[in-house]
Structures are given as structure tokens and as C-alpha cells.
Computed example of a mutant assay.
Amino acid sequence: MKQFKTAAESRLSITELMVPSHSNFGGKVHGGHILSLMDQIAFACASKHSQRYCVTASVNRVDFLHPVEVGDLLTLKASINYTGRTSMVVGVRVESQHVTTGKKRHCNSSYFTMVAKDENGKNIAVPGLLIQDEQGVRRFARSKFRKEAAFQRDTQFDSSSFNAADYIRHLTTENVQVHLK
């Protein structure tokens, strides 16, 4: 296995027709169906990069920018943005296309942290990322700083060291009442 791989070596794209069985009660394609497709392509991309079975460790926020209609073609694109020792961040972009007008819309993007596993289910090292352009540097750096910010946020609000008094003043403009006992 190579020690480093380019993002292009594991980049994937899939397109699927959205049918009525994918719709929610409002007649739009169910967000859960789209998330499932996103997870599948993130798995495939990470597994292709690492040549290992991979599992989803976390999903960065997902904002649904535009509804997807039944009858639209949904295209998902996945690429490795970051590699750690055993983990990878896979960027997933989702676009819908109206079949008769050809109009395309960016529906959402998200970042899936995937971890490679060996035959015994233990984390295993993955090839590093060989970056060849500024866009690759931007994506790698963004993922690195997003990871660091998440760690800081998690430790800042850890229940063992959290002091509510330090944060109550930040809640005064929110739709909440605080009555501590």
C-alpha cells in the first residue's frame, strides 16, 4: 500500500434518481435518506483511500440548503480532505438536478470523519494525503482547525469542569428561563 495518496485516487461520485419511496410526509425527499446516501459514499471513499473497512466516527453539521424533489437526480461527490493516523475526513457535496430543466442546486455539504479498522476491529493506520494544489491545502487546513475547535468545545463544556455561573449571563437574550436550585 502507498504511504501517501492524492485525493483524486479515492474521489467518488454517484447519481441516483429520487423516487416517491424516498419522500417524507411533505412530499420532499427525506433528509434521512440523503444522510444515508452521504454516509455510504463517505464509507466508500474512505475505504478506497485506506483499502480497509471504515466506520463513521462523526459527522460535522449538515445544513439542508434546498429541498430535493421526487424526480430529481441527486449527485453526491466525495473526496478525502484530511488524513490523521487512523482517521480521514471525507468531504461530501450533494447536488440536485431537475431532469427536465437541467437546473442544478447545491443541497448540502458535510464532513464525515471515518476510521479505518483491521480484521479484528482495531484502528489501523491509513495512508497520508498527498496534496498537489492550494485547494487541497485549504481543505486539509480547514479540517485540521475544525477538529481542533471541536476538541476545545468538547473540553470547554465537559460536565466534570463546567460551571453554570460562568454562562448564565450568555443566556439572557435566549428563549429560556433559568431557575437553578
Rank of each mutant, 00 (worst) to 15 (best):
P67H: 04
L17N: 12
N24V: 07
A42E: 04
L35R: 12
V94N: 00
S87A: 11
H98R: 03
R61C: 08
L17D: 08
E69C: 07
F43G: 08
S79E: 10
K122Q: 11
Q51A: 15
H106D: 05
L35N: 15
R52Y: 13
V115H: 05
M114K: 04
H22G: 11
Y82M: 14
S87F: 10
V90E: 02
I34D: 10
A78M: 03
D63F: 03
A125K: 15
G91T: 02
H33S: 13
D39S: 13
I124Y: 11
A46H: 14
H30R: 12
L17R: 06
L35Y: 08
I41W: 14
D118V: 06
R93G: 07
A42M: 07
Q40V: 14
R105P: 01
K104R: 12
S79P: 01
G84T: 03
D63K: 09
M114A: 06
V99R: 09
T113D: 03
A46F: 14
S58Y: 11
D118Y: 04
A57T: 12
P20L: 03
V70Y: 09
V92W: 07
G71M: 03
Y53R: 15
E119Y: 00
G121K: 06
K117A: 00
H106F: 01
R61D: 11
F112C: 04
P127W: 09
V126G: 05
D72H: 10
R93E: 13
L65Y: 07
F25Q: 10
L17H: 04
F43K: 03
G26Y: 14
C45D: 07
R105I: 01
R105D: 08
H49R: 12
A46G: 15
N24Y: 11
V89C: 11
L37W: 15
D72K: 02
E69V: 00
I34K: 06
A42P: 04
S13L: 10
G32E: 05
A116D: 02
R52T: 13
M88P: 08
Y53V: 14
R93A: 14
A125F: 07
S50C: 12
P20A: 04
V70W: 08
S10R: 01
N123R: 10
R61P: 06
H22T: 05
M18N: 02
R52G: 10
I41M: 11
V59H: 07
P127M: 05
D118T: 03
T86S: 14
K103I: 04
I124Q: 13
T75P: 12
L74F: 00
N120P: 00
H98N: 08
H66D: 08
T15V: 09
S36G: 15
G32A: 10
L37I: 12
S47G: 15
V92R: 05
V19N: 10
L35A: 15
R85I: 04
R85P: 03
H106S: 06
S36Q: 15
L76R: 02
R52V: 09
I80F: 09
G31P: 12
S79A: 09
G71A: 05
A44M: 15
V29P: 02
S109H: 02
S87I: 08
T83R: 01
A46T: 15
A42Q: 01
T100N: 05
K122M: 04
K117H: 00
R93P: 00
N24Q: 09
L17Q: 11
V19E: 13
N60W: 04
K28Q: 13
C45V: 13
I14M: 13
S23G: 04
V68K: 05
V55P: 14
G128H: 02
K104L: 09
R52E: 14
A78L: 02
M88Q: 07
N81L: 07
